[in-house]
Design a protein around this nucleic acid. Structure first.
Lengths: 346, 346
DNA sequence: GGCACGCAATGAACCGTTTCATGCGGTTCG
DNA sequence: CGAACCGCATGAAACGGTTCATTGCGTGCC
């Protein structure tokens, strides 16, 4: 079935026979290992060319390494993740490694696990993952056998590396900006409970906690308003409509990430374009003049690059964990402005 | 190196010993093959659980199949491709197959080849690819050993399947719409020569050819204006600025795809917001009210789904090729309107 | 001229799984 | 009661690479 028509592809054995040498010799030429003469190299090279030979990575992986890195991604629709991918891809350019990407799927709860396991089962030499939800214990166990770099986790494991943005600081920048503009009635649009469980240390939980802290500290504790939303901008749109149906709707919305912010913008455009919206991630469309979304930049591309570099270091032998924090910055654009003159709160 | 700390993971051998049975028996239980007693199943199951055993796919792939499908994608920044990915992912939900994604990279010219080869080398059971540029001969050769479905190719191979939008029809819809609105000075913003070589049958070449034909047929042959752009909306932005610097700038721009259209919109917003812009792919942001881009919908998500289904059929044994054409439709939005009253052409 | 030495090349073992040809004990049928 | 049969389990041979210990051979040294 694997070769419906045509004969089966050449193996290292065939190459060896054609070149009149041993399998071991061919293997050495392939990996251009030490101790192979010039004549051998050219003869074997010719045979490889002639037979159109390509080594099976699966066979190679059984003893040596697979020269394959895996990266797990929650969702392709969210541009932040594709920025990370872009960074990872460029970081691998020129190396012998190939990147394979596993989308998280497999029913709620199991989301990240399935994909990461699928990668590990395929004998990748290392894994980069964006999974705030998987348990630390489980990761620790996995890390015993496979080098791992986690993105967006604030826990400091002994056995895997992390690359993470300073989510508290990022949220603080947003709140400072909005409060500075004069907003008091600021709502926070965020994801479901499972991603924002207090104390879980997920990015979204930290942003949420910082939001509440900022509101409280600025004396607006009574105006705290948290609106939940599912993933995706459509869900965010609907959630925002619900939010805006309040008796006293907010004058500004701090969205947990840009995907949500895009949905919020859509709703705001319909209901009251005067309402300010700020996001998080500084996704590419945020800079488009028609959108012009104020957002926190946490350098997704650079995060992807760093993650891959850390992973390669690990594979090369490093064993002390590295936990890298990327400092966010706020990019102010047109979607935020002082509150429009409205009636003061009751 | 593969297990820096901790002992090595359990193998099928360990499970067999623990359960007091043969390796072959365990293997059968794993694949729940025919001919294994209830007692055996439970005993082996317990051992697997106890040892936390997971089969190595690499080893499995050496004899049987890898239960892994590969998909090659040119660019993550272009949302059309991530829509295809989303479709492919959902089509695989519930099956035993895992999707691995290889981003095209590896220097100009080699782009698609490298990634597709990397997938084939990893013994995937089948490949979906979006590579207008790779040669038909090369694909035919590859298809002898690996089932393949190509997206966006208009050639009708005997050995691989294709899923493709009707690009001529899509472009015709756009031109009909723009001409119907009263535009005559319509420019076409497209990619570099290599992707649009006349007669190459790539989607972009067909859109370009249809554009020229429509202009000619409508008596506007003298107003044909083709502007090249690199990949990405930034490049499109710059190219559009150049286009708008013409003595007689166009009143409407037909962009080869939405990524280009987004760049064009950016430039248009700065120079003359009255200029109409239409795109192709109906990417998600196109529907955002702030963008509101008229675009051709070719159902990227469904394309991804169909491609995976065709691939699974092939793997299951089908040998006659299938070539599926997806009919496009035009989604009219705010970015196109009648030409603003301007001075008539000289 | 003999000996130790270093480089090239080799044969065989190994990696972890699937598959195939057999073995084995117990029923069913003639 | 023996033969054919059946369901379950097994040992051994693949699969296609890598790695390790060993051999063969030409050199330099004393």
């Amino acid at each position: 079935m694997s070769h419906p028509n045509g004969r089966r592809p050449a193996t290292i054995e065939d190459v060896a026979r054609e070149a009149g040498v041993s399998r071991a010799a061919v293997s050495k030429v392939l990996r251009n290992a030490y101790g192979v003469s010039e004549g051998m190299r050219t003869r074997v090279g010719a045979a490889i060319e002639h037979l159109n030979y390509r080594p099976r990575i699966a066979a190679r992986a059984m003893r040596g390494s697979s020269f394959t890195l895996g990266i797990e991604i929650p969702d392709f629709a969210n541009q932040f993740f594709t920025m990370v991918l872009a960074g990872a891809t460029t970081a691998l350019e020129g190396t012998d490694y190939q990147l394979i990407i596993a989308p998280a799927a497999g029913g709620p709860g199991r989301e990240g696990y399935r994909a990461i396991e699928a990668l590990a089962d395929r004998q990748v030499d290392g894994v980069v993952a964006i999974s705030p939800q998987v348990s630390t214990n489980w990761l620790e166990r996995l890390a015993e056998h496979t080098p791992i770099v986690m993105l967006g986790r604030h826990d400091a494991s002994e056995h895997y590396d992390t690359v993470v943005g300073d989510d508290s600081e990022g949220a603080r920048l947003v709140m400072e900006h909005l409060l500075g503009l004069g907003h008091r009635r600021i709502a926070h649009l965020t994801r479901d409970e499972e991603v924002t469980a207090p104390g879980s240390g997920t990015p979204h939980s930290l942003r949420l906690e910082t939001y509440i802290a900022s509101m409280t500290e600025s004396g607006n504790g009574g105006l705290v308003r948290v609106q939940r939303s599912g993933e995706g901008d459509v869900s965010a749109y609907e959630s925002t409509l619900a939010l805006l149906a309040d008796d006293e709707p907010p004058t500004a919305i701090f969205a947990g990430h840009d995907e949500l912010a895009m949905g919020a913008l859509r709703a705001v455009a319909e209901v009251d374009p005067g309402i300010s919206v700020a996001g998080y991630d500084n996704v590419r469309v945020a800079s488009h003049p028609a959108v012009s979304l104020t957002s926190v930049d946490q350098a997704g591309v650079r995060m992807g690059e760093r993650a891959i570099r850390l992973l390669l270091e690990r594979i090369a032998g490093r064993s002390e964990p590295v936990h890298e924090v990327i400092e966010p910055s706020l990019v102010v654009r047109g979607s935020t402005r002082p509150p429009s003159a409205g009636p003061p709160g009751s």
